[in-house]
Design a protein around this nucleic acid. Structure first.
Lengths: 209, 209
DNA sequence: TTAATTTAAACAAACGTTTAATTAACTTTT
DNA sequence: AAAAGTTAATTAAACGTTTGTTTAAATTAA
């Protein structure tokens, strides 16, 4: 699928609204208003509201994997450095595309829309395969210990980042950080999270139980 | 609010449907059908669909905190044992009330329904206060190190458990565990997760950076 | 008798999608 | 280069459903 300017306009308007109010909570009319196009254009371009969501998933998924692949292929870094880069990559991914990841988190909670579930499944499988290669490489070089449960490790990575980023507002209030601007707060969280996860992963990958 | 048999029937029907298809994706008529009551009974008892959701939150939140408090007050355990009990407590909570926690996860993704956001906020604050006491106690006794970031630690606990439990289907397929029955799979995940998190928390609480 | 529960029917509003008419953009023909 | 022809883009209006909620009558319980 090619992405004309109008199509992207609509997808990005939908992305914001779906993130804010959920798929079923967002009327197609609101998407059209936000994108500044006529209501009928959505059916005209995408066929239906659901296919618009699918298009958005494909649109966002395309770029995601590529970045990760190029990062993990960098030969000049040790395996632990690559893992650390992976952690920062996930934090950035969630922080810079919060809307999309809120939508994806919601979609993972049910198995309603099958085409999208399949997309997520493929996505996850491919990501995990890449990480697995990275871990195996580190084990071969003797940097990492044996018997690492990769799905559990990924659950901690994605779960921690996702939970913290999507519940920022709670975190902000509970820790009395309301005085920080959005940007300051983002940097604050990124720094904390990065350090925390790198510490955890060092334990997971190198400390014997 | 008192919970008559009919009210509970309706709330639990709603809980399942909301978890499966989201709040906005669930027609009130479907809830009435599933609960085996007349459509009008929902407005009669709860006032509206949204107030039904609020009632469900209050219904589930009431019991949750109490269990945790009694657990943490047990004087016969070391602080690390209590932390380990806390981990198992959270795993059980998510595994036994998956429907409710899916709904809560979704509600945390937006700030649409304010009454519920406030409920979750209070809930989280109180939970974190209890955990904070536990950590302080362990630090006083010299069991735990200083400078523990409790919100980050909780994000890893809740994030990891929540992510794994709500994406079980992905986990099952990626790891070729389709042959396991639902119960076997539940036990499998609980064991793995429990061990993984206890290992992580030992690192967080006792290893110097 | 009175109050609480339950019902089927009705309500207006909102929903996703389609229609048919109009405008814009591009191609081909002269 | 202008006119005619053709496809694509855009529009306002309408479509039939589905939505959450209310009503007013009927049934049950106290």
């Amino acid at each position: 699928m090619e992405y004309s300017e109008k199509k992207v306009q609509i997808m990005e308007a939908a992305e914001q609204l779906f993130a804010e109010k959920s798929f079923d909570g967002t009327p197609v009319r609101d998407i059209a208003d936000k994108a500044g196009v006529n209501l009928a254009m959505i059916s005209y371009y995408f066929g239906s509201k659901e296919k618009l969501l699918e298009a958005l998933f494909n649109y966002r998924a395309e770029t995601g994997i590529l970045k990760m692949e190029s990062m993990l292929l960098d030969k000049s870094q040790t395996s632990l450095q690559k893992v650390n880069a992976l952690i920062d990559f996930y934090i950035d991914k969630f922080q810079n595309q919060t809307c999309f990841h809120k939508i994806m988190s919601r979609e993972q909670l049910h198995n309603q829309r099958n085409e999208i579930a399949v997309l997520i499944q493929q996505f996850k499988k491919r990501n995990q395969e890449l990480v697995k290669q990275l871990i195996l490489e580190g084990q071969k070089k003797g940097e990492f210990k044996k018997n690492i449960d990769i799905p559990l490790m990924m659950a901690t990575l994605i779960g921690t980042v996702s939970h913290l980023v999507t519940t920022q507002h709670f975190y902000k209030e509970i820790n009395n950080l309301q005085s920080l601007s959005d940007d300051e707060f983002k940097i604050h969280i990124k720094k904390k999270l990065s350090h925390h996860l790198k510490f955890l992963f060092k334990a997971i990958l190198t400390h014997e139980a």
